[in-house]
């Protein structure tokens, strides 16, 4: 039931950022997902304890949002956007290609890969687009999508890097990127400061905090 030292340290950092403890529920849920790979009952209990609300309240919040996965979704979560813009550009074919290659219907997962359809992910200009562990690839085609899944299965990257994937499998983008980034995601949750990638040193952030 208890978290690792690192996660508890992150939890302390997160709690310090908000005037009220309950506000930390959402970021702490990401910590819980990072701890167990998905959101377990124990993880929610721990968040409840840290924020002083009941586990039912934590689950109520967690279940409201799509990105808290209460079932295992594998190491790589492929979220294919099938909303209007991507749909117009053939997203359904891409999703079918992903499902075929992964051998999993959307909404399910094996140990390695989870596939889901997502509502708009904000990459309409580069449609069709998908997220792998919430890192974006734009301008997909069915063939490229199959290659992507095959690559995930064979290369088993530890860190999912958007630039790398875009270069390998992507096409047209919403706007010119130009700016390269080394960081990436380490699991099926967003790679963001306090709870995401391994290589972001949170101590270096916000040195002058007054709260």
């Amino acid at each position: 039931m208890s978290w690792s030292e690192e996660s508890l340290q992150r939890a302390d950092d997160i709690l310090a950022r908000y005037p009220e403890k309950r506000s930390a529920v959402m970021p702490l849920l990401y910590v819980a997902m990072r701890e167990d790979g998905y959101l377990t009952d124990d993880g929610m209990r721990q968040v409840a304890e840290l924020t002083g609300v009941t586990p039912a309240q934590v689950q109520s919040t967690a279940s409201f949002y799509n990105m808290y996965k209460r079932e295992p979704v594998g190491k790589y979560l492929v979220s294919m956007c099938t909303s209007i813009s991507c749909f117009l550009m053939g997203a359904d074919d891409v999703l079918h290609a992903i499902e075929d290659e992964a051998g999993i219907p959307a909404g399910e997962a094996d140990d390695e890969i989870g596939v889901e359809h997502a509502e708009c992910i904000g990459a309409c200009g580069g449609a069709p687009a998908c997220l792998v562990n919430y890192e974006l690839i734009e301008g997909l085609t069915p063939d490229k999508a199959k290659e992507l899944v095959a690559w995930l299965r064979s290369a088993k990257p530890d860190v999912i890097n958007a630039d790398e994937m875009q270069a390998l499998f992507g096409g047209k983008t919403s706007f010119d990127w130009g700016i390269r980034e080394e960081r990436g995601a380490v699991g099926p949750f967003p790679a963001f400061g306090p709870f995401g990638t391994a290589d972001v040193n949170t101590d270096a952030l916000e040195p002058g905090r007054s709260t």
Binding site: T54, A56, Q59, S60, S63, F64
Partner: peptide, 10 residues
């Protein structure tokens, strides 16, 4: 004051 029953999902 016993918030043990809550809305789940969306």
């Amino acid at each position: 004051g016993d918030p043990l029953i809550e809305f789940m999902d969306r």
